[in-house]
Write a protein that binds this DNA or RNA. Structure first.
Length: 508
DNA sequence: AGTGTAGGAATTGTAAGATC
DNA sequence: GATCTTACAATTCCTACACT
């Protein structure tokens, strides 16, 4: 879909080349769709069999149509270029494009025999790209958007368009899973090989970055973490607290909880520095542990809110969650970690248990809800969940596991031409959905990356690191400014703060 | 009635960027 | 410089609904 920014990019009256682009989109679409759609397009373009088209003329017609200076549009099909584009997009969802030669809005290619040219510039392109591969987009950063910092939404929409122009959309549930994996692989391989040629160190990034962060933590914050079994337990807490947190907050909360662990021998299920007491009164009497308590701060009159984590004689004990997801989301997993340390008989055996495989029935001792047949062997850390489990295993350097992060989702569904978006309310702002990847989709994405890893002769973790870096380069080359925290930069920042005061003691 | 799936609500501290 | 806005390295829990 063409955004307002893109419309502005066209800069009022398009150049002949841009008319030509416009025309190509309509012409190629028109030839590859069913008659009904072709008829709709002919409303805009006065072509008839036998009449040779003039691309510039046709583009001019489209532009006029978009600007309402043409009677064909008076019937109300489209009023602006954006409307026109939305209509095309709608048609595309009804009548999927054939996987023919159509390419992106601003990237029309000409083929003469097996030779390829960029239609806009006439530039000869040596390599015929794999349809859907975005490698050449990273190679040649371009100004697609007029604003300096297009939103992720703008870019995701443009990327959907880029993919759909070259291949049919593959929607989850509409096509077999194998089809999606087959689609993904050639594109993935092309993009991965581009990465290996241009930024091969990306695959080691994850490991080296983490090693650096560990060094800073041990040297400047908690020297006791130099003991491997303690670092292993710390990493489990780090993994659990990663939900919806960037590395800075993730590491900060893990360090704060480690303080609690060193003092009490267990991790706090809630953000303990926020713990406070609220007197039980007639009005708030009868609330139970786990419930939400809302009260007014007696000093400031400010409305406060927290979860009840305990009840003593006269007071409710209340606290907040470790992060932006529900208190239990972190709390349940931290309780499991405490249980593992206790029942396995200490830090060293607990770490060994988390990093080795056991039948699902044994994992159910800690997490009764975990999926899988009783005798399926899974890593102990999988009790922390589908995302946090593999993430924790990656922190341990176990390369066999797959972490489902938002970049992997964006990338995989870009290959399908269907980066998901949603409206929070009808008519309201649309967001790129980075979350809510269904459980059933995960094995499919994982299968594609496993096969990719095999083809590249890399392990899964390095493959992920490589592709994660590619997707970020792609978004950045299209104008996103995705600041990326890493554990190393987070550790540096936190160590500096540590010297001044413990973070939770700093004045807000 | 039971099972499986999809999708929405709830959860909330931080800091960069925008605006005053 | 102060204050406000926005979005975030998403998950778990719950409910509605389709299907058996």
């Amino acid at each position: 879909m063409v955004t307002h920014d893109q419309m502005e990019f066209l800069g009022g009256k398009p150049s002949p080349e841009q008319y030509q682009q416009l025309w190509r989109i309509f012409r190629e679409g028109g030839e590859s769709r069913v008659a009904r759609e072709r008829a709709a397009i002919r409303k805009f373009v006065p072509i008839s069999p036998g009449r040779p088209f003039e691309p510039v003329e046709a583009g001019q017609f489209l532009w006029d149509a978009a600007n309402q200076s043409n009677s064909h549009v008076a019937s109300g099909f489209a009023r602006t270029l954006g409307d026109l584009q939305r209509s095309i997009d709608k048609l595309e969802t009804v009548y999927p494009l054939d996987s023919d030669q159509r390419v992106g809005f601003d990237d029309v290619l000409d083929f003469k025999g097996d030779k390829m040219y960029r239609a806009t510039t006439g530039e000869r392109l040596d390599k015929v790209p794999v349809p859907g591969s975005a490698a050449h987009l990273v190679e040649q950063p371009r100004s697609i958007f007029k604003t300096a910092d297009p939103s992720v939404l703008d870019i995701a929409r443009w990327l959907n368009r880029f993919s759909r122009a070259q291949m049919p959309i593959l929607r989850w549930g509409k096509v077999p899973e194998e089809t999606m994996v087959e689609r993904a692989l050639p594109i993935a391989e092309d993009e991965a090989r581009y990465q290996l040629a241009t930024n091969p160190q990306a695959k080691e990034f994850y490991h080296e970055n983490l090693a650096h962060a560990e060094g800073v933590i041990v040297d400047e914050i908690f020297p006791k973490l130099s003991r491997p079994e303690k670092m292993d337990i710390f990493k489990a807490a780090l993994g659990i607290l990663s939900s919806r947190q960037n590395p800075l907050n993730n590491l900060r909360q893990a360090l704060i909880n480690w303080q609690h662990y060193e003092q009490t021998g267990r991790f706090s299920e809630w953000n303990w520095p926020t713990e406070t007491k609220v007197p039980i009164t007639k009005q708030n009497k009868g609330a139970e542990i786990g419930g939400r308590l809302i009260w007014k701060d007696p000093k400031t009159g400010e409305e406060m809110s927290a979860r009840i984590v305990g009840i003593t004689g006269k007071n409710y004990q209340v606290a907040k969650s470790w992060g932006p997801v529900k208190l239990e989301s972190y709390g349940n997993a931290l309780r499991m970690l405490n249980d593992v340390i206790r029942t396995q008989g200490g830090e060293r055996p607990a770490a060994a248990w988390l990093t080795s495989k056991h039948p699902t029935s044994e994992l159910r001792r800690y997490d009764p809800e975990i999926d899988g047949p009783d005798d399926l062997e899974q890593y102990g850390a999988m009790i922390f969940g589908d995302k946090r489990g593999p993430f924790t295993l990656n922190l341990y350097g176990l390369p066999a596991e797959f972490t489902h992060d938002m970049w992997i989702n964006r990338q995989f569904f870009r290959w399908m031409g269907d980066i998901p978006m949603k409206e929070t309310e009808p008519g309201s702002r649309i967001y790129v959905v980075d979350d809510a990847v269904k459980k059933v989709q995960r094995p499919v994405v994982k299968a594609a990356f496993e096969e990719l890893a095999t083809r590249l002769r890399l392990n899964l973790m390095d493959t992920q690191a490589l592709m994660w870096d590619f997707e970020q380069r792609l978004y950045n080359s299209l104008g996103a400014e995705e600041e990326q925290w890493t554990f190393a930069t987070a550790a540096r920042r936190l160590a500096d703060q540590w010297k001044k005061a413990l973070p939770w003691e700093r004045k807000r």
